Simulated assay, not measured.
Amino acid sequence: MDTPVQSFAVANLRRRPVVVETGGFVVGFDPDTTSPYINYATPLLGAAPTGSDVAALVAAFRGRGLKPRLEFAPDGAPAVEPALRAAGFTVEAVHEYLVCTPGSLTMPQADGGSGPVVETPDSDADYSAVDAALAEAFSGEFASSPEGANRLRRNQESGGAVRFVRAPDGSCAGGATCSAPAVGTSELAGVGTRPAFRGRGIAAAVTAALAEAMFHKGADSVWLEYSGDGSRRVYERIGFRPQGTRLYMSLES
């Protein structure tokens, strides 16, 4: 059973600015954005929702003008997927996740003895640069914004971590974030490198630095999802190993 990752998903959503708990689900909302990738729900471990439970969940989203959407590890709540499908939810994606532990982490070795220098943002300009770089890296899936930069700062200041590699012009070449540990684990997300700087080991460097930072904070593991075989190989080289899957489901209007 994917207990640690699903338990983390619950604990992490409970950190959101607005939290709604209904019918075995936890919903996390951020009033600064309408993004479905930030405003979503997850079930409690072992949840077995009824039709009325799912209807109440949908109402929590609709009342805010948002798309009902969930992210969860299905093995942690096997009854949830059938209940959502019965209510008209469909699967957006199934993502495998990888897990790294202190014993498996391997810090990357750069050819020639030098590699990307990983930094922690310490100014508004740095946070804005990281936000802009990630927006570019993910091909406009989200737009850079002051709110996005503020979310990065809040993450860093609330026990999580943000790491980046600076470009020659002082901007950000690539970076990533890691949520503050909860229930012994932490989610590493948003690993992105601007197209002009790919192939230079930036993703591996920031990922390893973030995992190391979380282990120093007491996490027993760090997990992430990957977007393709190329990124998977990067993560596996530094000690991430396959462990389970996560399911993304949503309800269209």
Rank of each mutant, 00 (worst) to 15 (best):
Ala161Leu: 07
Gly199Leu: 02
Phe72Val: 02
Ser35Gly: 14
Tyr37Lys: 13
Asn150Val: 08
Met214Thr: 05
Ser231Met: 07
Thr177Ala: 08
Tyr40Asp: 04
Val162Ser: 03
Ala86Leu: 08
Leu57Tyr: 01
Gly199Lys: 02
Pro102Val: 10
Arg200Met: 15
Ser52Lys: 13
Asn39Arg: 07
Cys178Ser: 06
Ala173Ile: 03
Gly115Gln: 11
Glu136Gln: 15
Val130Phe: 03
Ala110His: 08
Phe25Asn: 04
Glu157Ile: 13
Ile202Thr: 10
Thr42Arg: 02
Val91Glu: 05
Ser114Ala: 07
Ala77Cys: 05
Gly115Ala: 13
Val54Leu: 03
Arg14Asn: 12
Ser145Tyr: 14
Gly175Pro: 07
Tyr248Ile: 12
Ala209Asn: 07
Gly115Tyr: 11
Gln109Phe: 13
Ala203Phe: 15
Glu92Asn: 13
Ala125Lys: 11
Phe89Gln: 01
Ala60Leu: 09
Ser144Asp: 06
Val99Pro: 00
Val130Ser: 05
Ser171Trp: 10
Leu105Cys: 06
Ala176His: 02
Phe8Asp: 08
Gly23Val: 01
Asp75Ala: 14
Asp220Arg: 12
Ala137Arg: 03
Ala213Gly: 02
Phe215Val: 08
Thr33Gly: 01
Pro168His: 09
Asp126Phe: 00
Ala77Met: 03
Arg232His: 07
Leu210Cys: 01
Glu119Tyr: 05
Pro102Phe: 04
Leu134Pro: 09
Arg200Thr: 11
Val27Asp: 04
Thr185Ala: 08
Arg241His: 11
Met214Lys: 08
Phe197His: 15
Gln6Trp: 04
Thr3Ser: 13
Val234Glu: 12
Ser227Trp: 12
Phe89Trp: 01
